[in-house]
């Protein structure tokens, strides 16, 4: 469904993604594991066209999207829940969710999806009229995911949704990702937290300074020494 084909990305002279090839099949949940500055965010931003690649190609749902503008990619169902939540802080929860539906042709009938995400995150329902800026980090992360879902994504990209959150919230987010996966959503999850990443995804890539150093089934990767020592801490 989403394919990076030998993608190269530079920030000035800094070569950040090196011949990156990543593939996410329809209905598949894939993780992108990497430490700080490995290039996870850059990969996802490149997928959405917020950062342009210097070479290589991007395909989405059978179409070459390398040259498309961000809004065109969003229109095709490619949706990113960005690093650091990026809520509209002066908007209420409801207004944030409505912005999620912005690109949809049927955006005036978004109430159904609002109910769905409220069932998924009951805490957001309680805080529906609260300004996003006054909510906790965990709540803002839930809001960011809910806002992403409001877009009715065909493929959902999540950038470190558990970063900086309490273990119990991390568990809740991971649970949500697994529920979405069970419902058939295509997901690319970027994470430093390898335990979460491997628990959510059937398959994963390990990214090290812009290179894929390891890839495979989560069950296999969990057994490798590299993952054990680098990410799982045992």
């Amino acid at each position: 469904m989403l394919e990076f084909e030998r993608v190269n990305v530079h920030y000035g002279k800094n070569h950040v993604l090196k011949d990156l090839s990543v593939r996410v099949g329809e209905g598949e949940v894939v993780s992108l594991i990497g430490s700080n500055a490995a290039g996870k965010t850059t990969t996802l931003r490149t997928a959405l066209g917020l950062k342009s690649s210097t070479s290589g190609s991007l395909r989405f749902a059978g179409e070459d999207i390398t040259r498309l503008a961000t809004h065109q990619r969003v229109n095709r169902g490619l949706v990113l829940v960005p690093e650091g939540r990026q809520a509209f802080v002066k908007f209420t929860v409801i207004e944030n969710l409505l912005m999620g539906a912005y690109h949809r042709a049927d955006r005036d009938q978004a109430q159904k999806e609002i109910d769905i995400v409220f069932d998924m995150f009951p805490r957001l329902r309680e805080r529906r009229a609260q300004k996003a800026g006054s909510m906790s980090g965990g709540e803002q992360q839930m809001l960011a995911i809910a806002r992403g879902l409001m877009a009715k994504p065909k493929c959902l990209l999540l950038d470190e949704p558990t970063l900086g959150l309490a273990p119990i919230i991390v568990e809740e987010i991971a649970h949500t990702v697994r529920r979405l996966a069970a419902a058939g959503m295509t997901i690319l999850l970027a994470e430093q937290n390898a335990a979460v990443a491997l628990a959510c995804a059937a398959r994963a890539y390990v990214l090290e300074s812009g290179n894929i150093s390891l890839q495979g089934e989560s069950d296999e990767l969990r057994k490798t020494d590299a993952i054990k020592s680098l990410y799982l801490g045992n």
Binding site: H71, P82, F88, K90, G100
Partner: peptide, 20 residues
């Protein structure tokens, strides 16, 4: 609404599909 969203967070607005 898109204009207010953009004024608050341009990149997030772009990610919602706003033609910035």
């Amino acid at each position: 609404r898109a204009a207010y969203a953009y004024a608050q967070n341009p990149e997030a607005a772009e990610l919602m599909g706003v033609r910035t």
